[in-house]
Design a protein around this nucleic acid. Structure first.
Lengths: 180, 180
DNA sequence: CACCACATGTAAATGGTTACATGATTCT
DNA sequence: AGAATCATGTAACCATTTACATGTGGTG
């Protein structure tokens, strides 16, 4: 009955943020998730606080009280073990479901589009095309902003998301034409 | 306290499969998920059987005993209400998180790649590139197969997955060059 | 007869989510 | 004084996964 060693992607991401942004509070970590242009997780308090306590309990994070004010604000930092855990998480080979394209709600819906009447279908294609265009547009600004700030990795991250959004956008237009 | 009306994507997908493939058993539905080249769900028995019972309980599916043999095999079909539920699920506007690109484990990992030593980093880029290439390759055959069989929607589905895989592949190569 | 595919489920654990509760500090 | 933001948590719920249990029917 050894303690669990495998960490989820969310746990690793939190560990990574603490590593990258130096000693920081759960609140600051949360902001990173909440401000993300491509949120994979909610970053809600109910998730982050218990999670970081857990990481401390298993020795991947350590904390000390930040004497800033009367609030019980804790500053976390990554321990040596935490750093090792992060490195081995990054190390390939990655799990198969980490490299293959994940779930795509639009793709799933397209499978059953023939259930719709001709007019409904036309509306479906028109509006979803619009929504996909919007999602691509929404990713341009963050990418530019991060590039301007010199945040190369964050810029690359945003670019990756935009490229995927574009691929879906183009594919969906093709599908629209092919199915009339 | 009205009964829940919102269904998950998995529930809708099951509903869709039963609609598309005619009256069928949970086992046959499961196979669709298990055989998918781009699995979003496990399609395990523990998921599908209770789920279809639930859908029957709320009147979106109906079942009758298939007298085929001694096994208590039930044939499910989509009710009129089920058909309506499917149609309204397909109808736009889709939720924002349905159109924007979802989680990407590779993208997440890249954010923290600077934690790795130079050699580790080189290995990371080399092997993940390889894995992404493989994932693109693995999606070519299903697409061709579905096209050959005249399954237009399944072919489009596979093509969509492949396009996303390609976008990630190209983006990752770019990132690799940009970060040396 | 052994084995595999067919077929149906239950139980427990997991990994999140939302909603709620509470209090301190800073800004206007 | 009141509002917004900072800060920390708990409780309940949720969908889904894994592992397990059980039995039938057809094939080599």
């Amino acid at each position: 009955m050894s303690p669990k060693t495998e960490r989820t992607d969310l746990e690793q991401a939190v560990l990574g943020v603490v590593w990258r942004d130096g000693p920081c509070t759960p609140y600051e970590v949360r902001k990173q998730f909440l401000d993300s242009p491509t949120p994979s997780w909610s970053g809600s308090a109910g998730t982050i606080y218990p999670l970081m306590k857990r990481l401390e309990a298993v020795g991947l994070l350590s904390s000390k009280d930040a004497g800033r004010d009367k609030r019980s604000t804790k500053l976390y930092r990554v321990t040596a073990a935490g750093r090792r855990a992060l490195a081995s998480w990054l190390q390939p080979p990655l799990a198969a479901d980490a490299v293959s394209p994940g779930a795509d709600p639009v793709r799933t819906r397209l499978l059953f589009v023939e259930l719709l009447s001709k007019t409904e279908r036309r509306k479906f294609f028109a509006e979803v095309t619009q929504q996909l265009d919007d999602s691509v547009r929404a990713l341009r600004d963050p990418e530019r902003e991060m590039t301007a700030k010199g945040e190369r990795l964050l810029a690359l991250n945003a670019r990756g998301a935009r490229r995927v959004a574009q691929a879906r956008q183009r594919w969906f237009r093709e599908a629209r034409e092919e199915l009339n």
